[in-house]
Design a protein around this nucleic acid. Structure first.
Lengths: 234, 234
DNA sequence: CCTACCGATCGGTAGG
DNA sequence: CCTACCGATCGGTAGG
């Protein structure tokens, strides 16, 4: 009997996964606006028209729900900030600029209603040891590590001065981005975003200063423009 | 009868004010580590060995307690970061450096156990309109405004280049400080503090670049060293 | 400042 | 996925 109706079982599993996605979609909004602690089971259940027990059964604990929400948010972040920079921008400085641009656009476009989920979660859990804090710290390290890696690449490609310290520069760029998010959310105006863009631009110019002309950086081997035009022509 | 014992009434009022101070002392610790929302009346009452109603009567609402906690924290911040810079440092660039140094020391020394209360509160309340959010925003504007003002002074004193934009520079310095707090709290290591110091130093050097020799900035009218030596000799 | 209490909501469980 | 329930805690009030 069980073997004869595999498609019925599959449909149930599929439905369960869809419900889980719906839950995590609402959860990311709540987490970004009011924090991971405001992510209560009763509230989410009411919002989605389910019972508390029904929602709860998908995760098993509030902590597991918080971690699942962080992981879902990480996927969204990778897809909207990191992946495009690795797919469309050349390695090194162009990719670094793309990461910073995408991050600021990710804030400006309100990919998450309340701004960067990880900035909020980091502040919320930095004094509460446990698996949630560890997950937040791991995601943050992953992001800053990616910045450092791309900075190292840019240096090796001769696009940044040889004495540039990737850890130092990644810290400064990340700080300017955090400052943009912080000001944009609290003061509700775009000035912090503009200032972060300008600050990052000038900081990168300084890191490249006297090393190579800015115009040469965009097309280090001269092939980018040709490929772009081909893509557009299709 | 009432008029005959004014000293008794005064003692009661004094005791009430002392209790209020004790409450706000604990409240600032809770707010900095776990946020203004974790500032529950029952928890504070247990911690201080009082009844909920007794503690509650000092403020009248949770919101009023949160705002009183922010105001108490502002006093601590002014006393440990702003006042020393205005009392001991010369106007302009030396005072700007003192503000940044004091801020980073205020984080390193854990003046508040969980880091900068206002950074946390800003993130926690940026999506929750109301009096608490307004108070946080006002305190933040006050701080960034002070930075801008001192930057303007430094520019007028010829210590920074004439094309320096005080709003832009204040944003960048504040972002580096926030980044230091953020990293220090989440990653529990001092590297972010060192990187913020270095970033601020280099940013200020650049803002002064080609305008006046760094050595000349410390003693704009040549009298500071003499006064310092006199102080030490006493 | 206290005791005693209110309705609402919390995370989580039993049993289906 | 549901109903029905648990003890704990929330902000706040009555009355002293």
């Amino acid at each position: 009997m069980q073997v004869r109706r595999p498609e019925k079982r599959d449909l149930r599993v599929v439905h369960g996964e869809e419900t889980r996605k719906r839950i995590l979609g609402s959860a990311m909004d709540v987490a970004s606006t009011e924090g991971l602690e405001a992510l209560t089971i009763g509230r989410l259940a009411t919002e989605l028209g389910m019972s508390k027990a029904g929602l709860f059964s998908h995760f098993g604990s509030k902590e597991a729900l918080q971690i699942a929400t962080l992981d879902a948010a990480r996927e969204v972040f990778l897809a909207s900030v990191v992946a495009p920079a690795f797919q469309s921008a050349e390695p090194g400085l162009p990719r670094l600029r793309a990461l910073a641009d995408n991050w600021l656009r990710y804030i400006e476009d309100k990919v998450f209603r309340g701004g960067c989920v990880f900035s909020s979660a980091a502040v919320e859990f930095d004094s509460r040891p446990g698996p949630v804090r560890d997950r937040v710290a791991a995601i943050v390290r992953e992001w800053v590590g990616a910045l450092e890696h791309v900075i190292g690449e840019a240096r090796e490609l001769g696009q940044l001065a040889p004495d540039v310290d990737p850890g130092q520069l990644a810290f400064e760029l990340n700080a300017l981005m955090l400052g943009a998010n912080w000001g944009f959310q609290l003061l509700e105006c775009a000035t912090p975003l503009e200032r972060a863009r300008r600050g990052i631009d000038e900081r990168l110019s300084r890191a490249a200063a006297g090393h190579r002309a800015p115009d040469a950086l965009e097309t280090p081997h001269g092939g980018e423009d040709a490929r772009r035009h081909r893509k557009r022509a299709r």
